[in-house]
Amino acid sequence: MIKETDLNTAIWLLFLGVPLAAWQMGEIYTITLATKICVLALAGVGLNIALGLGGMVSLGHAAFFGIGGYAMGILASHAQSYAPIMETPFLIEGTKSMPVIWVLAIIMSGIAALAIGALSLRTNGAYFIMITLAFGQMIYFFAISWPAYGGEDGLSIYVRNDFPGLNTLVPIQFFALCFAILTAVIFLSSRLEHSRFGMALQATRQNETRTQAVGLTPYKIRLIAFVISGMICGLAGAVSADLNRFVSPTMLSWHTSGEIMIFVILGGTGRLFAPLVGAAIYIMLEHFLGGVSDYWQIFLGLLLLMVVLFAPGGVIGLLTKREAAHD
């Protein structure tokens, strides 16, 4: 049996070591794959706060991921064309600065999460799933019908945005940036989990009535967690858009929400490094099996089925011989 902290350290080192080795060997594609894993894992870390700690089964998190992506796309496209986003009542121009884009992506996705969460968290169970799905789809269809920013075709950004001191077009440098963000967010997620707020959030998931009886307000606690979760997904969306230099309504679709949820479940719901492991498995399957068959997701489905049936703690739970981190 491996201790979970040791396993987490090993996973972290592996995800740092493989791209560095690939860089030494000139395997650029491997670095890009690792970057993609980091970005998707970042979205998973966001969802894991809502799903793993708070027990909120949201099928609308792609909305925040997509909003982050569109925040990047809109700002960068205006910076490229030198056309301001708006001129009246005050001038807002585009930008190619990643930090500025990330802050705006976090704010926009946070506002959306606050609005969606405030309404959907008044419900529970299947109703919550359906309401988050409905909000997600509303935003998806809005993006499709928004011709100014590409509509159904999406929006291409020709050059990756800038980060001070880095050449983001160099794959290893962009990977380092994404990996640093992921590490920072995992660290913050760990601090959140072990804070009094995180404990109250987990208590809310385990017994809502009892939580109220000890003077806590589950609605408020869940809403805060939902907003934090949405903001992280928004950041992931912005970074993902920069990785692909492209945003499209697909980022907002419920399929994306499902994929992010799959990362978390494969890795082990509620576990700190679950999204990273889950995203890695997903991308590896897509990479290796996608070349064999267009229907590679059948194998993903089988794997997911096996995890749910035989390893409820996900891959991390299986390796640490522990049941699900949370009920």
């Binding site: 009094r196 404990m199 109250a200 987990q202 208590a203 385990q206 000890v214 806590l216 981190a325 009920d327």
Partner: peptide, 13 residues
């Protein structure tokens, strides 16, 4: 709260 430790049960409330 079954999946919280003793200390976490106390701190949470």
């Amino acid at each position: 709260f079954p999946n919280l430790t003793v200390e976490e049960n106390l701190i949470a409330t």
